[in-house]
Simulated assay, not measured.
Amino acid sequence: MATIEQRLTDMLRPAVEATGFELWGIEYVNAGKFSVLRLYIDHENGIDVDACAEVSRQVSAILDVEDPISNEYSLEVSSPGLERPLFESEHYQRFVGEQAFVQTRLALNNQRKWTGEIVGVENDVVVLAVEGKEQRLAVNNIQKAHLIPQFD
């Protein structure tokens, strides 16, 4: 069964792409009256406030008609930023060689949190170099992940 984020991604991606932006990913945090639907958008020329407002207008219209979330929520549209969240296999592949933090849904070797270098992706399995050892993490077991910015 698809998660709410997957259903929303399928529903909203065409509208975001029609505005000329990439829908990088969606997070939905269900917290009763304080729930948040967060869309991350990207573009090769960067993201500014006007871009976020434009996408917000387009997405809001669809959400008003489709009404996929039954409770109240706030809509946020933003750039992925420096600590770019990673949602799909392609995201990990794009950032091979970068440092990342990954939290899994289920523990592997009694551990759910991993920090290391993204080595690659093989058949929807992220290969992360953690303290000199390769750790293989299935994308569908990753609860959340983001890049760790490196400053020289």
Rank of each mutant, 00 (worst) to 15 (best):
R105H: 10
G46P: 10
I62V: 15
S89V: 00
V96K: 13
L12N: 04
D42L: 02
S74D: 13
N30C: 04
P80W: 10
P68T: 14
L8F: 08
I69A: 14
F21A: 03
T9S: 10
V96W: 00
R7N: 13
E76W: 03
L39K: 07
G97A: 08
R13P: 00
Y40R: 07
E88S: 04
Q103N: 05
L8D: 01
Y92L: 11
F87Y: 12
G32H: 08
Y92F: 15
D48L: 04
S70Y: 03
V55R: 02
H91R: 09
F34Y: 01
R94A: 15
S79M: 07
T19M: 02
D42F: 05
F21E: 04
M11Q: 07
D42H: 11
E22T: 10
V16S: 11
H91N: 14
E44Q: 13
D48K: 09
E5G: 04
R38C: 05
M11V: 03
T9I: 01
Q103T: 05
F95M: 05
F34L: 07
I62C: 02
E88P: 00
E17W: 01
C52I: 10
L39Y: 11
A18N: 12
T104A: 11
Q103K: 15
D48G: 06
L39R: 11
E88M: 05
L86E: 02
R7A: 10
S79K: 07
S35E: 07
E72W: 01
L82G: 04
F101K: 12
V102G: 12
T104Q: 08
F87M: 08
R84V: 08
E98N: 13
R57W: 12
R7E: 14
L39Q: 11
R38E: 12
V36M: 08
L37V: 05
E90D: 11
S89L: 00
F95D: 13
T9M: 08
S56G: 13
N45W: 00
I69S: 12
E90P: 01
R84C: 12
P80H: 12
D64H: 02
V29M: 08
Q93P: 02
V36I: 13
D64I: 03
G20F: 10
K33N: 10
Q99W: 06
S70A: 15
E72I: 00
S35G: 07
G25E: 02
G32E: 03
A15I: 08
D10R: 02
A61S: 11
E83Q: 12
R94Y: 08
E5V: 10
A31W: 01
G20S: 05
I41Q: 10
R84N: 07
Y40K: 11
Q99R: 14
S74T: 15
